[in-house]
């Protein structure tokens, strides 16, 4: 349930000057693990995530989810997009209900669940608002609720908090920690924020660009449950220093 495996995965975008976005990437993510992908802009983080999501096809290699191949998007691999990507003509509630309703699940089953999720993300009073009436953070919470309502085996999150201000970002990180700690789904989380990666992840995969590769994997052994208060803990700072050193190292090797 929820394992992800990349074996020598290559992704090339064709064109006049083909772009090798991923070059022989290997990655194993275990059941219930929280993995952060950390790297500079353009190194192929989104490409990697889009491959597991089923949005794009790899050029060569092997990619599996729960031991099976990935050939199209599906609700067991829920995606949270950077700009939420909510449907603007649907209310908050309708956006969350979209998945269950296209899956023809009985309304009586998912309606109570939506109510519970709205409460969990603190948006009960906004059930009937349109996305355009919400702040960025609130929209992103709808995006998370929309993913969770499908009981996904993995959550794929592509810089979900990248567009938010620092304060909102922290409250979203806390929300995600709380949700994940109670659900235990596998999470692949793309970010270029080191603090965010350390705070959230069990393991951080550092990527480098040109060619896009995973150059380092770092295990974060901060105790759980975690909270945003830990951002200033000495243990946290030590981790950060170590990771920055590794990143500098990785950069030198690939320069």
């Amino acid at each position: 349930m929820g394992t992800i495996r990349f074996r020598e995965v290559v992704k090339t975008y064709p064109g006049k000057q083909p772009v090798i976005a991923l070059d022989r990437v290997n990655l194993d993510i275990g059941e219930g693990e929280f993995v952060a992908l950390l790297g500079p802009s353009g190194c192929g983080k989104s490409t990697l995530l889009n491959l597991i999501a089923g949005f794009e096809e790899m050029t060569s290699g092997a990619l599996s989810f729960n031991g099976g191949t990935v050939d199209s998007p599906g609700p067991e691999r829920a995606v949270v997009f950077q700009e939420a990507a909510l449907l603007p003509w649907l209310t908050v509630e309708q956006n969350i209900a979209f998945g269950p309703s296209v899956q023809k699940r009985p309304r009586a089953e998912y309606e109570p669940k939506i109510r519970e999720l709205l409460r969990l993300v603190g948006l009960e009073r906004f059930a009937h608002s349109l996305p355009s009436q919400l702040s960025g953070g609130m929209r992103q919470r709808v995006g998370i609720a929309r993913a969770l309502v499908m009981d996904p085996k993995a959550l794929l999150m592509d810089e979900p908090f990248g567009a938010l201000d620092a304060q909102t970002r922290m409250s979203m990180q806390q929300l995600l920690l709380d949700v994940w700690q109670s659900l235990g789904t596998t999470v692949l989380f793309v970010t270029h924020d080191i603090d965010e990666a350390i705070l959230l992840a069990d393991r951080i995969c550092i990527m480098s660009a040109r060619p896009g590769r995973i150059t380092r994997e770092i295990t974060v052994d901060l105790p759980r449950p975690r909270s945003v208060d830990q951002l200033t803990d000495p243990a946290f700072i030590r981790h950060k220093a170590a990771i920055m050193a590794e990143m500098r190292e990785a950069q030198k090797e690939h320069a």
């Binding site: 999501a53 995606v79 990507a85 899956q103 929309r146």
Partner: peptide, 11 residues
Amino acid sequence: NWIRAAEMMGA
């Protein structure tokens, strides 16, 4: 992304 989101939700 609207299309991708819908597909990922099983549409």
